[in-house]
Design a protein around this nucleic acid. Structure first.
Length: 424
RNA sequence: GGAAGGUUGGCCGAGUGGUUUAAGGCACCGGUCUUGAAAACCGGCAGAGGCGCAAGCCUCUCGUGAGUUCGAAUCUCACACCUUCCGCCA
């Protein structure tokens, strides 16, 4: 959520910042809520102050054994009036909060303006798409050919957008997650965490807007619990309602978890294979940092995600998302896109964002700065990486003419020494 | 599912209707002392919000929400969460 102080102090700057991402801030509605709130708050507090002062007099008089009926007569009626005003104030504050919580973050100035993915800017590229001297298959043909990918059984169990993995392909999937955890914990300084795969609505609204995006989530029937669409949901909420000592920052967590998404708005997209599923695994990296360190941490975290692809030998490019392609809570996002020979295209395999204080304000996550004051910390996260899509990239990039797949050297230790997956 | 106990500031903890302006301690910050450090001593120290040029003043918050009252951390009701025990269970 945006800083309401900033809205009061410099509304034009907020309006201009949001306009860059195509969001029209309703100035008139905000001003109306502000005026109403201010009036009610002043009146309410005045009444409360009067009631408190008079009640104190009653206490003093009764303590001395004197007659308090004159003061009691004065205070009569103030209580009811105060209560009516309190209720009206609570109502307008709720409406103001509802209004603010569906407003997206303001993009950082260096984020390019644009309306769609076509306006994203490539910032770097690593590796060369492999040249094949045989007809390239996509991951579905490679995986099914190996007997390791089975969408028919998955459909029988759960319908579309699920997959079943078998044998060495299932193990390769596990090896990828293990490898990523290994690199992030041993080389990048993250602490591994295991978390609930369901979170409360309050947690969901802490990282994004539940009101806006609840259709993208799977909700448990009759309970205020949602299946997590990413480990960002539980992990970022570690610091919800906390004041973290400044000396403990930065906090760095890595979490391997399944992710559940309804893909409500993507009915026709990527229906083939395991690119877009209702359930997929992801290794997520999360940081909580001091505000002055967040820009640097964002670059670093993006580099941590890229490192996985380099170690695997998978070509990729890194895109700076334009204002129109960014997520609701993000101030700046890099997408890492891996080369998929089967699609002859770069496809998103990681999204690395800095939220600055946007999520922290929603979550009431603060740290104690050097002056001893509590202020919102900054949160960041990125996929490091999406395991399912990494499996897709490995199957396609390392496929051989005979239908086998070479295991990337970095993964061999996690495959029990197996260097090549062949049809059995 | 049943029963009992509990929830107070960054942490621990006192507080059963009115000088409570939430005691005291720990941690933290500043200072005195010291070659330096520790100890000791002195001082500071919750959060959110409003009004104000400012100094400052005011309001709210003792798990959450209602209620009783002139006045609630304290009394009543509901709910959430935690702990322990019983039952069930991977």
């Amino acid at each position: 959520m945006l800083d309401i102080q900033l809205l009061r102090k410099d509304l034009p700057a907020v309006v201009a910042g949001l306009k860059r991402r195509g969001f029209e801030f309703d100035v008139a509605a905000f001003q109306k809520l502000e005026d109403e709130r201010r009036k009610l708050q002043l009146r309410t507090e005045e009444l409360q102050a009067r009631r408190n002062a008079l009640s104190k007099q009653v206490g003093a008089l009764k303590g001395k054994g004197e007659d308090a009926s004159a003061v009691l007569a004065q205070v009569a009626g103030i209580g009811d009036e105060a209560k009516a005003n309190e209720a009206a104030l609570a109502d307008v504050q709720q409406r103001q909060s509802d209004f603010l919580r569906v407003i997206p973050n303001i993009p950082r100035p260096e984020v390019p303006e644009g309306g769609s993915a076509g306006d994203n800017v490539e910032v770097r590229r690593w590796g060369e798409p492999r040249a094949f001297d045989f007809p390239v298959k996509d991951h579905v043909d490679v995986g099914v050919g190996l007997g390791g990918l089975d969408f028919e059984t998955a459909a029988k169990l759960s319908g579309a957008r699920f997959s079943v993995l078998r044998g060495p392909v299932a193990r390769l999937h596990r090896a990828l997650a293990q490898f990523m955890l290994q690199v992030h914990t041993e080389e990048h300084g993250y602490t591994e965490v295991y978390v609930p795969y369901m979170v409360s609505g309050e947690c969901a609204d802490g990282v994004s807007s539940l009101a806006k995006f609840k259709d993208d989530l799977f909700k448990l029937e009759g309970r205020d619990l949602y299946l997590i669409p990413t480990a960002e949901y539980p992990v970022t909420n570690f610091v919800r309602d906390e004041i973290v000592e400044g000396s403990r920052l930065p906090l760095r967590y890595v979490c391997h978890s399944p992710c559940f998404r309804s893909e409500a708005g993507s009915y026709g997209k990527d229906t083939r294979g395991m690119i877009r599923q209702h359930q997929f695994d992801k290794v997520e990296i999360v940081q909580m940092v001091r505000p002055e360190r967040s820009a640097e941490a964002h670059e670093q975290l993006t580099g941590h995600a890229e490192a996985i692809l380099r170690k695997l030998g998978l070509p990729y490019r890194t895109m700076l998302l334009c204002t129109g392609d960014m997520g609701f809570s993000s101030a700046k996002t890099y997408d890492i896109e891996v080369w998929l020979p089967g699609q002859n295209a770069y496809r998103e395999i990681s999204s690395c964002s800095t939220y600055e204080a946007f999520q922290a304000r929603r979550m009431q996550a603060r740290y104690r700065n050097d002056g001893g004051k509590a202020e919102p910390l900054h949160t960041l996260n990125g996929s490091g990486l999406a395991v399912g899509r990494t499996l897709v990239a490995v199957l396609e990039h390392f496929q051989n003419a005979d239908g086998s797949v070479t295991v990337p050297p970095a993964l061999v230790p996690f495959m029990g020494g197996v260097a090549r997956i062949e049809r059995r």
